[in-house]
Computed example of a mutant assay.
Amino acid sequence: MIIYGQHNIYSFRLFDYTDCPEGPILPGAHSIERFLIEEHLHSIIEMYHLERKDCAAHLLNFPYKLKIPLEYCIVEVIFAELLHMPTPRYLEIAYGAILIELCKLQPSTMPQVLAQATEMLFMRIDSMNVSCFDRFVNWFSYHLSNFQFRWSWEDWDSCLTLDEDHPKPKFIRETMLKCMRYAYYLKMC
């Protein structure tokens, strides 16, 4: 995760070109193309953030979508907004709702990219700010609650050997507690 900043303009870097499978190449971290793509995606979110379905549709209809790995750019921009310090621009739930709509509209690619991003954030969680940690827990548990709580938990088995106060087991524990609350609510309805 790299953050570049100058004159209060920050770019969040989660992916590089090696993270994307074959197909269009992700522009380099310092390339003007990447900044322009991000700026356009941020403006779409700004314009449509109150209407999750419209926002997701407009994000997926990005004009140059065939020339870039669009799903990677979208996920990176949404996480940049969600994890922005000191607070995100919009309500945290808005970003979660947009990501859910994106997964519904693009089921062949978006869930895999989102899972890859989740894995990358989880691997770097020990250096994550506490506020970002909490937002990540909130988003992930909300996302799981909308997809039948399915996740490949066995990939994170190595956390069982860590101290319980380490950020990774703590993340899993807090996510599970939130998921139990969501599941309890669903059983009550």
Score class of each variant (00 low, 15 high):
residue 144 L to S: 01
residue 180 M to K: 09
residue 183 A to L: 08
residue 76 E to G: 15
residue 10 Y to P: 13
residue 82 L to E: 01
residue 116 Q to A: 12
residue 146 N to Q: 12
residue 88 P to G: 10
residue 98 I to D: 00
residue 166 H to E: 03
residue 143 H to Q: 10
residue 136 F to T: 04
residue 12 F to T: 10
residue 41 L to M: 03
residue 61 N to D: 12
residue 176 M to K: 02
residue 58 H to I: 08
residue 189 C to K: 13
residue 41 L to N: 01
residue 122 F to N: 05
residue 154 E to P: 00
residue 159 C to S: 09
residue 42 H to C: 12
residue 171 F to T: 03
residue 58 H to M: 14
residue 46 E to C: 05
residue 72 Y to K: 05
residue 188 M to K: 06
residue 177 L to G: 08
residue 2 I to R: 12
residue 115 A to L: 07
residue 172 I to L: 10
residue 19 D to C: 13
residue 160 L to Q: 04
residue 74 I to C: 05
residue 147 F to S: 04
residue 163 D to P: 02
residue 5 G to A: 03
residue 79 F to M: 12
residue 102 L to T: 02
residue 44 I to C: 02
residue 33 E to F: 12
residue 8 N to A: 06
residue 28 G to C: 00
residue 36 L to E: 14
residue 160 L to I: 01
residue 87 T to H: 12
residue 53 K to I: 15
residue 40 H to L: 05
residue 141 S to N: 04
residue 147 F to M: 06
residue 23 G to K: 15
residue 40 H to F: 07
residue 120 M to V: 06
residue 107 P to S: 01
residue 87 T to N: 14
residue 33 E to C: 01
residue 130 V to D: 08
residue 12 F to D: 08
residue 180 M to F: 09
residue 150 R to Q: 05
residue 110 M to P: 00
residue 13 R to L: 04
residue 2 I to E: 01
residue 100 I to C: 02
residue 67 K to F: 13
residue 95 Y to L: 03
residue 70 L to Y: 02
residue 25 I to F: 14
residue 123 M to R: 15
residue 169 P to G: 10
residue 144 L to T: 00
